[in-house]
Design a protein around this nucleic acid. Sequence first.
DNA 1: ATATCGTACAACCAAATGGTTGTAGATCAG
DNA 2: CTGATCTACAACCATTTGGTTGTACGATAT
Lengths: 110, 110
Amino acid sequence: MVVDQLRETELDRLFQAFADSTRRDIVRRVTVGEYSVSGLASLYAMSFAAVQKHVAVLERASLVTKEKRGREQIVRGNHEGLQKARRLLDEYEAIWQERVGRMAGILAEG
Amino acid sequence: MVVDQLRETELDRLFQAFADSTRRDIVRRVTVGEYSVSGLASLYAMSFAAVQKHVAVLERASLVTKEKRGREQIVRGNHEGLQKARRLLDEYEAIWQERVGRMAGILAEG
DNA sequence: ATATCGTACAACCAAATGGTTGTAGATCAG
DNA sequence: CTGATCTACAACCATTTGGTTGTACGATAT
């Protein structure tokens, strides 16, 4: 197999990152505005360290970036990752539509 | 918070299901054609039971359905789950585009 | 009738996940 | 300088995940 190992693990990380509601919320927020890690942490009923880990997961998945500003670390949304995930689902959708087309064709023949 | 707990865990399962390359491959295949569980199992370098578990994960996420036919269990793609995941990413994309619009507006003003 | 096939499911295991607390280093405010 | 704030990171813990093997049972083929 070994289709495209790099891309595959990249996608693993992307979808894994989306598979948690706290992380999805973080992505939404940092897309709209600017947040420091502690700014984000104050929003959730969990420890600072836990939020820090969530941000790290998102960063590894290329869904956010961090930039140091003074003693703060500013988290921002990164469109790149989002696009990749979206493109994959678009592919799947296309496969499905193609199949639906074939089915329709078969029905038309019969 | 408790935004919409049901939908949130549903999305957790959906993205979690996509976060594995074997499962993504299974989804592609069963969208195009028909496979029994053992038919799928023969494609991968892992045990039947492992593939059975992957299919179960996909089923829980509403990405595939199973239907008994004789002694076989036929796995088919289920469009519903795919659409839900796709819709969420579309929402995120929309949020992003909105933000880009605002940025452009600010630049125009300044 | 018997052997084989496809499935289900339990038990087990190592590694990853999602959380915690605690410690320590920068940076900023008074 | 001192104290508070923001971050990083290690250590720990319970649960989940992704895999295994083994057993059991209905459906099928010979």
